[in-house]
Design a protein around this nucleic acid. Structure first.
Lengths: 171, 171
DNA sequence: CTTTGTTATTTTAAGTTTAAACTATATGGT
DNA sequence: ACCATATAGTTTAAACTTAAAATAACAAAG
């Protein structure tokens, strides 16, 4: 039986109740989280069904596409939100699929550089175009003003959060 | 060497580049996604360090707290964005910690109902209070208007996305 | 040189995730 | 009762995740 309902659209209500009892920050966060998950899951689903790819794979390929010469694995990790140890397996799988090629650096044999293959470039371009179109489709009813306003205000949100992180990673 | 940089604050820029070349919908999505991950990771970190709990555990307990009589596992799955198969292990771990109790339904032996124990209720109340305070702290610089505006506009976003999901789950 | 430290990547262990298959139980039509 | 079908929950397989330890290569100080 097929049954992946992990992100039903009315999630926020179901999950968090009427939510009138929460503080504004909490209400916003619950709504933002549920919306993000809704979109993420939808994109994940489409990437998988239409391209047999996962979201982290797409992220990684987007990075490599941006750097024609390829990137060392540590740099890839930094740019993709994927932890160091995780890059290894991710790149291995992409290499097995012929989308990425690994080469060892000449001067420094510790370094491995990953680079998209021509097939990888083709595949990425297809996925990127679809990804852009999916977002246009999914957000089409929100209105251009809302999209613009959200972009600005989420910027403020992000700045505030960045300034109050507990770890050493605040900039 | 310790090295978990998976969510540095300037992620959006690093990850997605100047992003001026993207369509507004894509730009918004990348910013929204990176901000959500920033907050999620911070809350996950705090839940873990201060309560030894994971985010899915917190979500699940929030649901059970809301329903005094407890919930069947399928209903829990629907309400928590946790897929069916995942509920099993999650509830198992919480039961092992004495925070949740499982009982089999009398009439329908397929059904299992999960319910918070008194210890579970105590624990949840502590976590919920901290969670609310963390959000207030993290979002404090964003401004009340931005928070209010975001709440409204993300509502539109969510409605649009819900209306255009590919699966059968659109309502 | 050789010890000490640093950097790049891989490996490991524990746990989470999704999607799909499986088991057991119930229900409904005949 | 019997069979098809639906439902509740569990299990499985593959991918991903974090955190930490391990390996390997380089760098530099004495």
């Amino acid at each position: 039986m097929i049954d992946h309902h992990a992100a039903s659209p009315d999630m926020e209500l179901i999950v968090h109740g009427p939510s009138g009892r929460n503080k504004p920050e909490t209400r916003l966060w619950l709504r933002m989280l549920s919306t993000t998950r809704l979109i993420t899951n939808e994109i994940r689903r489409r990437l998988r069904s239409q391209f047999g790819a996962t979201l982290p794979q797409f992220d990684l390929m987007a990075q490599l596409y941006r750097e024609e010469a390829g990137l060392r694995l540590g740099e890839l990790s930094r740019r993709t939100m994927v932890t160091n140890g995780n890059i290894t397996g991710l790149v291995e799988r992409l290499e097995a699929d012929g989308l990425v090629k690994r080469t060892t650096h000449d001067q420094d044999r510790r370094v491995t550089v990953a680079k998209l293959t021509p097939a990888g470039i083709d595949r990425f371009l297809l996925m990127a175009a679809a990804h852009e179109e999916w977002l246009r489709e999914l957000l089409q009813d929100a209105g251009d003003e809302a999209v613009q306003s959200l972009w600005v205000n989420i910027g403020y949100l992000k700045a505030s959060v960045s300034a109050h992180l507990s770890g050493e990673e605040a900039e």
